[in-house]
Design a protein around this nucleic acid. Sequence first.
DNA 1: GTGCCTTTTTTCACAATGTGAGATAATATG
DNA 2: CATATTATCTCACATTGTGAAAAAAGGCAC
Lengths: 257, 257
Amino acid sequence: MKKGTPTLSSLGRALTLLRVVIEDGGKSNLSSLARKVGLPVATAHRQATSLVEFGFLTPVSGGRHMAGPELLRLLYLIEPKEVIARLAMPAVEALAEDLGTTVHLGSFDGDMVTYRAKAGVSKGGLFTEVGGQLEAYCSGIGKVLLAHLPEDERNAYLANGPFVALTPHTITDPAELAHELDHVRSQGLAFDREEIEERLRCVAVPLFAPDGSVPLALSASFRNLAENDGTLSAAAERLVRAANNIKDELWPKHSSS
Amino acid sequence: MKKGTPTLSSLGRALTLLRVVIEDGGKSNLSSLARKVGLPVATAHRQATSLVEFGFLTPVSGGRHMAGPELLRLLYLIEPKEVIARLAMPAVEALAEDLGTTVHLGSFDGDMVTYRAKAGVSKGGLFTEVGGQLEAYCSGIGKVLLAHLPEDERNAYLANGPFVALTPHTITDPAELAHELDHVRSQGLAFDREEIEERLRCVAVPLFAPDGSVPLALSASFRNLAENDGTLSAAAERLVRAANNIKDELWPKHSSS
DNA sequence: GTGCCTTTTTTCACAATGTGAGATAATATG
DNA sequence: CATATTATCTCACATTGTGAAAAAAGGCAC
């Protein structure tokens, strides 16, 4: 029985209460929440009072609580895309290993795709690098992200061309691109068929946040595939599964019984 | 010396560390942060380890840390508008008392203004109620919120009329409304000159969030003012001050020396 | 590689501090 | 007004957090 660094159990209990209060959304009073967590009321009360004192909670009428100013401040300091990308890393690496190719994780920032993670063999030497940016309209990740943008922003992007052809396959017509994005959204995945570089293809899938937005997209790239090679569609299936796993891990369904 | 409910000081220290780590944005390692907070490294290390264990932090390379999955989850559960409205309440009530009139706090949700707080005398019997919604284009709060919307969304709203006239003064022409909104944005405040109800006027100012967005707006309403009464502009000044106070309280400048 | 410095992690004795049952006050609820 | 429910306080107890010091693990220059 190894000792290791001991965990601050009282901190754990207090953070659990904090989580429960926030999840409750200010509907219940302290006693019922204490009961739900299986904590003595006295203890829960002391924790709640302290959390209020430290600004992580605020009392609202009737002994209920909601998020406090400090928590609100943290909320504006955190960059969800960055955090999600970090937390998804293990899954991304596993996927890359599994597929034996390069896997990317990217987000949409200021009309461009930011590559936030890159995993897997660099055989074929992909040009991308983490932190780098690329045009959105021609990559799989970009098309997924564009497809799930709020309608206003998507239209604004489409109206903001021009879309320069990088290869003969690049989609450069806004109307055609709009149609492609509709397709991507309904299919739940996007293909890049040599639109960015000859003989380079990829599949990309969205990573949904609980509010329905798509902060990140996941892609797998392949070089020199035969025209009717099944690799891409096989990879697509794996990507969808990986995306689902990440989603389930980050936003588990609460068995809130 | 009253006892009161004792505060969990260890919780406070751990939450301080959490805040410092997030504020740091994952730039520094633990020891430097511990030094900054004036905490023994051993203690800071134990707290950080525990925060990681509870999912509030995640380790990144080089002994640094960033927000963890639980914190991310909280982020998506919290409704900033609601929280800010709650935290601004005291200031809103003070302002209403100070001005001796009705003060409103509203947000923009789905093309409409949601009234999230109402304070002050109900003389003149304003029709609004907390939780109720109203068209945005004709109220002071609505115009402030529209004016500070991202350009895409503002244009989408303007294109989405029609704007029905509630009084002869209501702005119903999209182009004119667009011009008015530009004015509102550059002035930092909006007036409602009997646009929603005869003899009812109000001033409204934006409440800025740290990211530059305007989640809420603050307004003061007056009835039966003479055409050239200085009350409105006097109130405007007070509103601006109140908005600044709220902002400074919620997002204090860190003397991060 | 070797040595030196910084940072991370563990150990451990001590007491500070969190704990929860129970009493009391405050508040809904009928 | 009576009665439940909930919030808050008190206090004795030992759980649990604390921090100095030592050990282990990286970094970095040379």
